[in-house]
Amino acid sequence: MSMTVEMAKIAIEGVILKTEKSIEREVAYQKELADDRAALSHVEQLQTDGEPLPTGNPYGSFSEWKEQIEKEIKISQNSLDRIEIEKAELMALKYFMENAPTTPET
């Protein structure tokens, strides 16, 4: 069975809602990224100052601690990059919804 424009629009409505919900998380990812960068800076400063690892720290070394924070930074940045793509996809989907020809009802 071939898909009609109306069928495509129905399917795309769900995709639009899902994409909009994903984009709503952008601010949270930005905050997380800023927090992680601040944490990395703090850890680097502790290391530079020759401070010992804090008591109860789950990492065996400053290097291990920094590696974990850098992984978290990369995850947040990847999420923000994905959201930029989703914004473009959302624009295209909305354009299709507004401009795709509909077949007249008979």
Rank of each mutant, 00 (worst) to 15 (best):
R37E: 05
S79A: 15
L53I: 02
K94M: 07
L90N: 03
P54V: 06
S61Y: 05
G60H: 03
T55Q: 14
G56Q: 05
Q47K: 12
R37F: 00
Y95V: 13
L93N: 01
S63T: 15
T4W: 04
M1C: 11
G60K: 09
E98L: 06
D81E: 12
A8H: 12
V27R: 15
S2V: 07
D81P: 03
K66Q: 14
L17M: 11
K18P: 01
L40C: 01
K66R: 11
S22Q: 11
E13H: 09
I23N: 13
Y29T: 01
Q30L: 00
L53E: 08
Q47A: 11
F62Q: 12
T103E: 15
E20M: 07
E105F: 05
E44V: 04
K87H: 09
R82P: 04
E67W: 03
S63N: 13
T55L: 09
M3E: 10
E20D: 09
G50E: 08
E89G: 03
A39F: 06
R82D: 09
M7L: 12
K21G: 05
V27P: 08
S61A: 10
D81S: 08
M3Q: 10
I10M: 12
I16Q: 01
T106N: 13
V5N: 15
T103I: 15
Y95E: 14
V43N: 00
L17W: 09
D49K: 13
T55W: 09
Q30G: 02
V15A: 13
I85Q: 15
I85G: 12
Q45S: 10
M1Y: 10
K18Y: 05
K31G: 07
T48F: 06
V5G: 10
E89L: 04
W65V: 07
R37D: 01
D36Q: 12
T103A: 14
Y95H: 13
R25V: 06
E89H: 05
E26Q: 12
E44N: 06
E86G: 04
E20R: 12
P58R: 15
K21A: 11
P104R: 13
S76H: 02
E51F: 03
D35P: 03
E13I: 06
A88M: 07
P104N: 12
E89K: 02
S76E: 00
E86M: 10
S41N: 11
G14S: 11
L93H: 03
I10D: 15
V5Q: 14
K18M: 09
V27E: 15
K18R: 14
A28G: 11
L80Y: 04
K71P: 01
K21F: 06
E26K: 12
K74R: 07
K9H: 06
A8G: 11
L90W: 02
K31M: 06
S61L: 05
P104G: 10
Y59I: 08
Y95R: 14
K31D: 10
I69R: 00
T106L: 07
S22Y: 07
V43K: 00
T102P: 03
D81R: 09
Q30S: 01
L33R: 01
T4P: 02
Q30D: 05
Q30R: 15
M3W: 05
I12F: 13
R25A: 13
D35L: 04
Y29P: 00
L33F: 01
H42F: 04
I85D: 15
N78S: 02
I16W: 06
E67N: 10
K66E: 14
I75F: 07
P104L: 07
A92P: 00
Q45I: 02
E51W: 02
L80I: 01
T103G: 11
E64R: 06
